[in-house]
Computed example of a mutant assay.
Amino acid sequence: MCRSIKTLRPPMTPEVHDEDIRAAALQYVRKISGFRAPAAHNQEVFDAAVEAVAAATAELLDGLQVRGLPAR
């Protein structure tokens, strides 16, 4: 779907930072909305979507269990 979003789970990416999660969320919302930068009247909902996707991504990554790796 969006080739610029990289896999963030271990072992593909050993260290994932908040910036990585937010960048992936931003790319996702841009792709879904069709806007690289939303108009001023859409900025609030755009930013809220990025934050919601970032939170869901962080929750997913925190909950994943990858075989062969110790639980976080």
Rank of each mutant, 00 (worst) to 15 (best):
3 R>E: 14
3 R>F: 02
4 S>T: 14
4 S>K: 13
6 K>S: 12
8 L>A: 08
8 L>N: 04
9 R>T: 11
9 R>Y: 09
9 R>A: 12
11 P>M: 04
11 P>K: 03
11 P>W: 03
12 M>I: 12
13 T>E: 11
14 P>S: 13
18 D>P: 02
18 D>F: 00
20 D>G: 06
20 D>H: 15
20 D>F: 01
21 I>C: 00
23 A>Q: 08
23 A>H: 04
26 L>Y: 09
26 L>T: 15
27 Q>M: 12
29 V>I: 12
32 I>M: 09
34 G>M: 08
35 F>T: 03
35 F>S: 09
35 F>R: 06
36 R>D: 13
38 P>Y: 03
38 P>F: 05
39 A>M: 06
39 A>S: 10
42 N>G: 00
42 N>D: 13
44 E>V: 13
45 V>F: 12
46 F>M: 04
46 F>Q: 12
50 V>Y: 07
50 V>S: 02
51 E>W: 02
51 E>T: 14
53 V>L: 10
55 A>V: 10
55 A>N: 10
56 A>Q: 15
57 T>D: 09
57 T>H: 08
57 T>G: 09
59 E>T: 14
59 E>V: 09
63 G>K: 12
63 G>C: 07
64 L>S: 06
66 V>H: 05
66 V>Q: 11
67 R>K: 13
67 R>C: 01
68 G>I: 13
69 L>M: 12
70 P>E: 04
71 A>K: 11
